[in-house]
Simulated assay, not measured.
Amino acid sequence: MQNKINITFGKSAFSKLPKKFSEKKYSRVFILVDNNTNKFCLSDFISITGFDKAEILIMEAGEENKHLQTCENLWKNLSNKGADRNSVLINLGGGVVTDLGGFVACTFKRGIDFYNIPTTLLAMVDASVGGKTGIDLGSLKNQIGVIEEPKQVIIDPMWLETLPKNEIRSGFAEMLKHGIISSKKYWQTLKELTDLRVSTLKEFIKPSVKIKKEVVLKDPREKNLRKILNFGHTLGHAIESYFLINLNKNKLLHGEAIVIGMILESYLSIHCAGLNIEVAKDIKTTFLKSFKKIEFSSDDKKEIVKLLKHDKKNIGDKINFVLISSIGKPKIDVQVPEDLFEDAFNFYLSD
């Protein structure tokens, strides 16, 4: 992957796409949407861009559809509709669409160009930025994929008006994470927000994208620095996977699971990275103002801990965590004694 990220903000970038595509001499234009963006976003996107002759590919919405069967269906669709190596794929949607769509593009005929148009707050500040494409392996998050930058990411907050409140909160969780790992000032600003409406949060999209972009440019392949973006994700991904496969549980959005992971890993940071306990309590209080507490049984906790062995940051049989010594000071590749996991859940669940 080239060390280059092309991110553009604002609606005017959409109207420039036809000229750009003409200059690149793309043979066919394909647009990937899910049920939601097909209903709420596609007609506006076509109206702005004039891509009324583009072929539309539709996938089922949701993390549970981010798997190989969906990819196979899309590859067959592309092939049946005459896609060649000079075709282009536009991914119009949230993180599942941009992750899976990017992977489909990277692997179809050994790679066609793709563009990401993120339509959720989470995708704008996280999923569509940094070139990570991929799918889940069963319930295990993002086990299959490649790192490849889209030709362009176009971010416009207008799409956020179509989202329910829980999706907005899910994206806000990743923005708070950016503050925790990189900037005490940014964390302080975000944690004091009481109005989580789009009109308020859209002002913080660029700062969050800038934080992630600067990290990715320094370490595009996640060999070192980029690992800090995984704070909260080791336990958070295990929790998200567990709730996805357990039929007795309500599915958690990515941001909802990562919030729990960040609270748990803040507790682990007290014991393994020297974090002040009052800072960990402040992190917990901040998140629980916007996210309701989820209950965990003893069996739940055991199954979640078992899933940790599949985390992508692991080396050999060692489970590697990203922890923090203070706000803005992360530590990577930290091993955590297993007996602390129960204490971390107790910290999260306590009043």
Rank of each mutant, 00 (worst) to 15 (best):
L78T: 12
Y348R: 10
K132Y: 14
I112L: 02
N346S: 15
N77F: 14
T234F: 13
K292L: 02
L252T: 05
F9D: 13
H178M: 14
S15E: 15
Y242A: 05
K53S: 14
I294E: 08
S139P: 00
I332C: 02
I258Y: 00
S12H: 11
Q188S: 15
D299S: 12
D343S: 15
K313F: 07
G10I: 11
R110S: 08
H271Q: 09
Q152A: 15
E167H: 13
I144V: 15
A273Q: 12
I260G: 13
I168R: 03
I155G: 10
L160W: 13
G255V: 04
D333M: 09
E338I: 08
S183W: 05
S12G: 01
G134C: 07
H233K: 03
F14W: 10
G93P: 05
G138Q: 02
T189C: 02
K223H: 07
S22N: 06
E23G: 06
K281L: 12
N142M: 02
M262F: 02
S22H: 07
I48Y: 08
F14D: 08
K25Y: 12
E222C: 06
N320T: 05
E148P: 02
L140G: 01
T8Q: 08
I228K: 11
F347D: 15
Q335Y: 09
N314W: 07
H178S: 15
I180W: 09
R85W: 04
N77L: 12
R28A: 06
G236Y: 10
V96G: 08
F40M: 14
K165Q: 10
I48V: 10
R221W: 09
N230C: 10
E203F: 01
A173C: 15
L196T: 02
K24F: 04
T286M: 00
V259E: 02
Y186D: 05
I332R: 01
E72A: 08
S325R: 11
A280S: 14
V104N: 00
T286Y: 00
N86Y: 14
S290W: 05
K227M: 09
K218C: 04
I135H: 01
A123I: 00
G274F: 01
F9E: 12
I327K: 07
K19E: 15
D52K: 13
K177V: 11
K24L: 10
D156H: 07
S290N: 13
I5V: 14
G95N: 01
F114W: 08
W187I: 00
I181H: 09
L78A: 12
I168K: 05
K184A: 12
H237E: 08
I270V: 14
N224E: 15
L349R: 03
L163G: 03
V129I: 15
N38R: 14
T189V: 07
T98K: 10
I7P: 04
S128N: 06
D84K: 05
S47V: 00
I31G: 05
K53V: 12
N346W: 08
L78M: 13
K20Q: 15
F172Q: 03
G101H: 11
S290E: 04
D99Y: 07
K293D: 00
V322F: 06
G102A: 13
K289D: 06
K184T: 10
F114R: 05
L340I: 11
V96H: 07
K313Y: 03
S12K: 11
E265F: 11
F321L: 10
G328A: 07
G236E: 05
H237P: 07
Q2T: 08
S183R: 04
I135F: 01
I180Y: 13
A123Y: 07
V259C: 03
P337N: 10
A105P: 05
E167Q: 13
N86A: 04
